[in-house]
Design a protein around this nucleic acid. Structure first.
Lengths: 134, 134
DNA sequence: CGGGATCCTAGTTGATACTG
DNA sequence: CAGTATCAACTAGGATCCCG
């Protein structure tokens, strides 16, 4: 039972222990995780995982994102070095977004999380129903 | 290069293809992911990964969470079946939170993500600095 | 086509005070 | 100790209009 915990590599907890006094607040990993865990970043990364996409192409594939959040999230991902933006000087202009090598590397942990979610979302839904009954 | 993508198991993308018309909007995995990706859930799960904790014990370990958000996040995690709450009838009363088996199972994908973050947060920070310079 | 700039709302979070 | 309740602040996000 403990093996799963050990295997997980509890970076945050370890970090807290090693930095007595600093506690969890300053953990550098939290900054990364907070960015990743916004509403759209993960979804856009997974969309681009399938290959480069143009702006309005992404909009069509993720219909419920607003243009503002698409622009903003793509820029944030670019800023973090996960996505590369390439402008083709055609008319009308076309802009292509693709994952950088680092962006592609995050697909793996994302994939694990998605796999977990697909395996457990029924259990979670059932648990919610049961909880709300009480 | 494509092997990483395949290995990731692109559940969301596959789901969209299989459900033509519904697109990504209704993907059941997204509901799970949205819940998990709030500000505190992941951090609390990782805190409880180390073993059961009492309410104020968690507060001390995660100093920058407000009592309101701690209560709320713990209740949400309990509702989703990731955390079990056990009340000991002492005085003053003590309440213990521990991960359920499902809660423990999510540590593994979380661990992968944390590992990724710990490996890349320097690169990300550097990328941000470079981006902001322009 | 690929955005930028505004305005505005709704949900999230924190601070504070109180309770069994 | 382990919460609840209330209020205030903040901000993520959407709607709309505009532009090169």
């Amino acid at each position: 039972m403990l093996s799963a915990l050990e295997e997980a590599g509890l970076y945050i907890a370890k970090w807290a222990e090693q930095n007595s006094g600093g506690s969890l607040t300053d953990c550098p990993v939290r900054g990364v995780l907070d960015r990743i865990s916004d509403k759209w970043s993960m979804l856009l990364v997974m969309t681009l995982a399938d290959g480069p996409r143009r702006f309005n192409q992404i909009r069509r594939e993720v219909p419920d994102i607003s243009q503002k959040m698409l622009t903003q999230t793509l820029r944030d991902l670019q800023r973090d070095g996960l996505v590369a933006r390439r402008v083709y000087d055609t008319k009308p202009p076309s802009v292509e977004y693709r994952l950088t090598p680092m962006g592609e590397s995050i697909i793996v942990p994302f994939g694990h999380l998605i796999e977990w979610a697909s395996e457990n979302h029924r259990r979670i839904t059932a648990s919610r129903v049961e909880f709300d009954a009480a």
